[in-house]
Write a protein that binds this DNA or RNA. Structure first.
Length: 760
DNA sequence: TTCTCTGGTTACTGC
DNA sequence: AACCAGAGAA
């Protein structure tokens, strides 16, 4: 059957997967042996080439398990698997390894990390665990958190590790106290049988460099490597790839230097720029024909990215029509910008578009809120990709910490996280005692907590209860499935009970999240990766926990059901939509200019390029004239420099608009007044100004949460008159954002604020 | 010794 | 939203 479909060789008809390819695409598909560099511009049919290349390899008799395809996100991995399955059938596709660097490396480590002195049950510390550990270490070493902020320390450590460096390598350019923290950090990870995200890659490199037999084993296993998004690999990943590929040299890398957008994570664009030097015999293929976007969209994207020096000068071109002009939407503020986008979408819907045809792309997740609100108001179905990721919610992490601790009792951060959650009367003093004991006897904290002679009888009882809970979970690990284990942990720990008793909207939301986690865990059993022994319950659980730690969000592909997609530019890479809105094109937001270096701006430019090239037919650029900055008040925005870099004749109406108005310089008094008048005008329109009450005022004490509504005037004992601008939190415990004179805002709990309501 | 409340601060991008 | 420090209550 597949023989018929795929054609075999010789005189038969050409296999279907070779049909409909342009010459460079075909060259890339057919170059199976040896090093291969594919420079694939946006929309040049990269995924199509990769999936067909894999089909071709399988057809040539290469066993699927010899192929390792590395993608940058779980989402991309899932998509590639699906598309290969469509070409070669699910049976063979299942035996391929398609995953992210991190997932692939975790699997390698779970098998071989023993050689480095860790147990196979090692835990993975995410950035949050990392930060907690660094805070603990800083405290022990009496570092002033002002002078050495933990986040800064983490940054230094991450940057070093991205380059495969350890404490000694950074000793020269750093304070010795920082180096000491780094050293302690590494020790503590090892003691806790834990690795951080960087280690996931680095430990595999250590393994390969230190144990030739292990390297050979994996070289033998994966004889054909395919690395997608090569421009976003860091030094450690680069080293890893080169080690693995050294023997068979069947290394295909795919990338686009114009789409390198992860330097904050150590991505090194020179990895792809120097591939030809690393492999002088490499076949190089340039995919420059874009099949995705209209000519105008492409021109706009190219015009922006071309400002970057030092790029491989490839010229994307298209056969497509000019298409419609780009559109520019300017809102008074961000709310208005979002409303106008919603309005524009409604127009599109009336003209026959589906909601799923639209995507809104912004720079930071924080921007998603205004769009969500606007779309809800306008009744536009939408789906958010990414945001506060599910597995990062506190309750989810707490429950997972219980289970990780049951699997790996050495996990110190896990112990600290849940030993007193829910409250068991185990405070810092007791924890300190347990830690000292653990140190003294060289055991885990869980072990130390078993000791009966710590503190008072009450404390011992609580600790004993906690230890019994962990034992109970550990015991259940061998008998129960992930879904059951999540439920067990939530129930037996008292976590659920606590939330139920709380009876607030927030608590109910958390319960829902735990239920969702249980459901998600239950599905793990059915989606085991190849090569895992499903009969070993611990392995199943471990696989689930790994996935939870490594994947931002369950890899839900946005459903076909017809919803507008909202996401960041980073998450948008690799996706395409008929109509794309690139939102928030103002200085400080897109580009983000916290780091004003030329390099950073170049990356922002590439990010803009990525965002623009998601659009197939229509591209709408949007910005606001003003925006709230950190709740500090309205600030006038400067249009994004990238807007200026788009040739204006590509934009509808732009060429006819008045000469460009630059924001008034703050130094001039006149323009300051003008700006003030401008701000006032708009403020009045949207939000009535707080007026000083004339004469004696009538106030009353609020009697129910319903008294607090947006727009209500209140009197604060210290801050005076204010107007409620936002009500958040739960009904029983509302949190109010109140605007006092001018633009000063404050957020506080209504319960404690002794507010009076001013009767009008 | 632990818990609870309060106010302040701080937030980019993601495996 | 989440985390922290500090004060005061239990």
């Amino acid at each position: 059957m597949s023989q018929l479909l795929l054609g075999g060789g010789g005189q038969g008809p050409e296999p279907s997967y070779l049909q409909g390819l342009n010459p460079p695409q075909r060259k890339a598909v057919e170059a199976i042996e040896g090093p291969l560099l594919i420079l694939a511009g946006a929309g040049s049919g990269k995924t199509r080439v990769l999936t067909r290349r894999i089909a071709h390899m399988l057809d040539r008799g290469i066993p699927p398990w010899r192929i390792l395809a590395v993608t940058f996100t779980n989402k991309a991995a899932g998509e590639m698997k699906e598309r290969v399955a469509a070409l070669v059938g699910p049976e063979r596709a299942k035996k391929l390894t398609v995953s992210t660097f991190h997932s692939a490396c975790v699997r390698i480590l779970r098998q071989d990390i023993k050689a480095l002195g860790y147990s196979n049950q090692f835990v993975i510390y995410d950035d949050d665990d990392q930060l907690r550990l660094l805070k603990a270490i800083s405290k022990e070493q009496n570092l002033d958190p002002k002078r050495f902020p933990p986040r800064g320390l983490r940054g230094i450590i991450d940057r070093a590790k991205n380059k495969l460096q350890g404490p000694q390598d950074v000793a020269a350019e750093n304070d010795r106290r920082i180096v000491a923290v780094f050293e302690a950090y590494e020790e503590r990870l090892k003691e806790a049988n834990a690795v951080d995200f960087n280690d996931i890659i680095n430990k595999v490199v250590d393994l390969y460099e230190g144990f030739p037999a292990i390297l050979e084993k994996w070289q033998g296993r994966y004889q054909y490597l395919l690395i997608d998004e090569y421009q976003d690999t860091n030094a450690a990943q680069y080293k890893l790839v080169n080690l693995l590929a050294a023997r068979h040299r069947n290394l295909a890398v795919v990338g686009d230097d114009d789409q390198s957008i992860y330097s904050f994570r150590g991505a090194d664009i020179t990895n792809i720029l120097s591939f030809e030097r690393d492999f002088p015999d490499a076949v190089v293929v340039m995919l420059e024909q874009n099949y995705r976007s209209t000519s105008r969209i492409l021109q706009a994207a190219m015009a922006v990215v071309k400002r970057n020096p030092g790029r491989k000068d490839k010229e994307l071109w298209t056969d497509a029509t000019e298409g419609k002009p780009l559109e520019l939407i300017v809102g008074r503020d961000e709310d208005d910008e979002a409303s106008k986008v919603a309005e524009r979408i409604r127009v599109g819907l009336r003209q026959g578009r589906q909601a799923a045809d639209f995507a809104v792309i912004y720079r930071t997740n924080a921007r998603s809120r205004v769009f969500e609100q606007a779309f809800r108001r306008a009744g536009i179905p939408h789906v958010l990709v990414g945001t506060r990721r599910f597995y990062e919610r506190r309750e989810v992490k707490d429950i997972l910490a219980y289970l990780k601790l049951a699997l790996n009792p050495s996990d110190e951060m896990g112990f600290l996280r849940v030993v007193n959650v829910p409250r068991r009367g185990i405070g810092p003093k007791t924890i300190e005692l347990v830690r000292e004991l653990a140190r003294a006897q060289g055991s885990s904290m869980v072990e130390a907590a078993r000791t009966k002679s710590l503190g008072s009888g009450k404390v011992n009882g609580s600790l004993g209860g906690f230890v019994r809970l962990i034992d109970q979970l550990a015991d259940a690990l061998d008998r129960s499935l992930p879904g059951e284990l999540v439920e067990l942990a939530a129930k037996e720990s008292g976590y659920l009970e606590l939330l139920e008793a709380e009876d607030t909207d927030e608590a109910r939301g958390r319960i829902e999240n735990i239920q969702a986690l249980a459901a998600d865990a239950a599905s793990q059993e059915f989606s085991l990766d190849e090569g895992l022994d499903g009969s070993d319950r611990r392995v199943v659980m471990q696989a689930f926990l790994d996935r939870a730690t490594l994947s931002g969000q369950a890899d839900e592909l946005p459903d076909e059901g017809g919803r507008v997609t909202l996401m960041t530019a980073h998450l948008a890479k690799g996706l395409e939509y008929p109509v794309v809105f690139v939102a928030g094109l103002v200085e400080g937001s897109f580009p983000l200019t916290r780091d004003p270096s030329e390099q950073a701006i170049e990356e922002e430019r590439r990010l803009t390029y990525v965002a623009f090239t998601r659009a197939q037919e229509e591209l709408v650029l949007t910005r606001a004239m003003m925006r709230m900055q950190y709740g500090q008040g309205m600030m006038r925005c400067t249009p994004s420099r990238f807007l200026d870099e788009v040739p204006r004749e590509l934009i509808r109406g732009y060429e006819r608009s008045a000469p460009k108005v630059r924001p008034p310089s703050v130094s001039s008094q006149e323009s300051r007044d003008r700006m003030k008048a401008f701000l006032d005008r708009h403020r009045v329109e949207k939000k009535p100004k707080v007026e000083a009450a004339a004469g004696p005022r009538v106030t009353r004490t609020p009697s129910s949460p319903d008294d607090f509504k947006v727009g209500v005037r209140v009197l604060h004992p210290e801050l005076g008159d204010g107007v409620i601008r936002n009500v958040s939190g739960s009904r029983s415990e509302p949190r109010l954002t109140i605007e006092f004179g001018g633009m000063r805002r404050k957020t506080l709990f209504a319960r404690y604020a002794s507010l009076e309501i001013i009767e009008s």
